[in-house]
Structures are given as C-alpha cells and as structure tokens.
Design a protein around this nucleic acid. Sequence first.
DNA 1: GGTAAAATCATCCTAAAGTATGAGTGAAGT
DNA 2: ACTTCACTCATACTTTAGGATGATTTTACC
Lengths: 154, 154
Amino acid sequence: MGFQISRYNKEIILYGISLALLFVLLRFLEFRFLIISHSFELYVGAIAVLFTVLGIWLAKKLTSPKVEMRIVERFIDGSAFIMNRREAANRKISKRELEVLQLMAQGMSNKEIAESLFVSLNTIKTHSSNLFEKLEAKRRTQAVENAKKLRIIS
Amino acid sequence: MGFQISRYNKEIILYGISLALLFVLLRFLEFRFLIISHSFELYVGAIAVLFTVLGIWLAKKLTSPKVEMRIVERFIDGSAFIMNRREAANRKISKRELEVLQLMAQGMSNKEIAESLFVSLNTIKTHSSNLFEKLEAKRRTQAVENAKKLRIIS
DNA sequence: GGTAAAATCATCCTAAAGTATGAGTGAAGT
DNA sequence: ACTTCACTCATACTTTAGGATGATTTTACC
C-alpha cells in the first residue's frame, strides 16, 4: 500500500484550504469590522454559522454510510444459463467453434455435426482439434466438461 | 398539519441556546482575548473548530442516517446434486458401471479409467458398451449427457 | 486493395472408441 | 448344489476420433 491515510483526503485538504483562505480574508477585514461597534458579535456569528455549515457538509462527506444488508435467497433456475462470454472471448473461441462445441456437448458425432452444419467431416475435425487446444482438453468429453465448468456452454 | 416545522425542533433549539450562551461568554472574555497580540486569529480558529464540531454533531442528529442498501443475493445452489437412484436402478446400472460412468463424465479416456480402477482396458470397454445400451446412447458423450439429464451423475 | 482472422476442405496416419462374442471367477441367494 | 449376476478379460474387427500439415476461400476491417 502506498499513500493512503484515508479515502477522505480530498475533503480534509479542502477543509484546510478553506480555513487558511478564511484567515487571509480576516487579515484584510479585521480592522474594519472591529471599528464598527457591535460588529464583533456579528462577525463571530457569521464565522459560527459558516463553520456550522462546513461541519454539516463535512459530516455528510465523511460519515460512512450505514450498511444494511438484505439477504435475498434466490433459487438458481437451472434452465437460465448465463454464458461466460469473457471466457469464450479470452480463449478466442470463434462462433463456428462454439456451434460445434454445443453439438458436441449434445453427444453428436463429428459426422452428425458435419451433416447438421452442412460442412465436411474434415472441417469439423479441424474445428474440434482447435477447440481441444483452446479448452486445454485431450478429448471431446473433456472439452465438454471444461466448457461447462467455464460456463461457455450450458 | 399543525405545529411541525421539523421533527428536529429539539436539536434546533439546543443549537440556538448554545449559540446564545457562546455570545454571552464572548462578552466576558472579549477584551482579554483582544489584548493579547495575535490572539484574534487564535480566537477565530477556536470558534471555527468549535462550530465545525457542532456542525458535525448537528448533521449527525439532523440528517436521517445514510443507509446504503447492500442486497446480498445468496444463491441457493441448484447444483446440489441429488442422485436419482431410481433411474439408475431401473436401468440396472451396476456399481462398477456407475464408477466408470462418473470417470467418463470427467473426460477420462478408457485407458485412464482402466488404470485408475486397476482393471484392463477391455473391461472398461465392456462396461462402457453396457452403459451405452442402458443409457440409450451411441457414444460416450451422449451417455454422459443422458446420464446428467436423468440425474444419475452430477 | 491489402491484411488478418475465420472458415473451409484435403490427405495421411495413429490412437482411441466401440461392437460382437465368448469365457472364467466369485459372491449371493434359493 | 445350482443359478444368477456382476465383474473380469480376451480376441478380432470396424468405426470414429484426433494430430499434423497445407491449401483455398470468405469475411471483415483499415
């Protein structure tokens, strides 16, 4: 950890600066105010009100919000699959490869996949070989298992 | 509505009283403070700090507590696997076959399964062939898929 | 219009999976 | 004792999967 006393540094510094500025201002106005009779109380009052406001402002900034935890228990709908697109993207799995993977997961043979996608068997073999690399799998069963764990397929 | 400017009347009145008291106090100390050179700034500083603190106190009293709702979703894991023993029994899947099926689902090859169960490759082939029939599958990927659907394996 | 990635297909070859069939062994039940 | 069944293993064969490599074609993007 580097420089971090508090995450409210900015507010504290601002408070300090405004205080310093006020003092400079005072220097210039000091005598004028003092000359006028009964102005002293007025002056102090102004300061008081000003710093009260400042205090309120500070309080609002500084106080950490009270956290109210609301625990919501929710059943995961097994049919609601949320694909992990990040994983698929990181592994650079193409659209076509994903299609092949899905059919593979359904238990289809390469031949069946080829027929259902209207491409040659060799094409599917290439796709699946590429998939195995990208999914760090040696076999199609492993590829399917890994893909499911990574939430790439349902 | 009757007399209700704010539900913080008490605090506001207290604030007014303390302000008034301060002014009285000032009257008594006024001259003494002013005589001492450079004490004016000190005096104003004290007022400033005091009213800042007062402001903070006020803020805490007056403002409705800042509540950050943190909704924690506790997902009840639907994947808590409850094996469908009835299905396994109906299909007459033996203990050993189930073991093979589980390892198969993990992506293991027949050879790997054979080694991990200390039996021959041929034995595993027999088991898996029997499994395919019992699970109405043509391939191991299909067997795994069907078994998962039937909740025979997780 | 050039480039890069994706998709397509092929060939050659090896490894693994799957089928069919037969057979030996041990444990459990009748 | 006999039967049944799960488990084991083997041989022989077919099919499918998978690896390595190279090539062509689309598609998309600057």
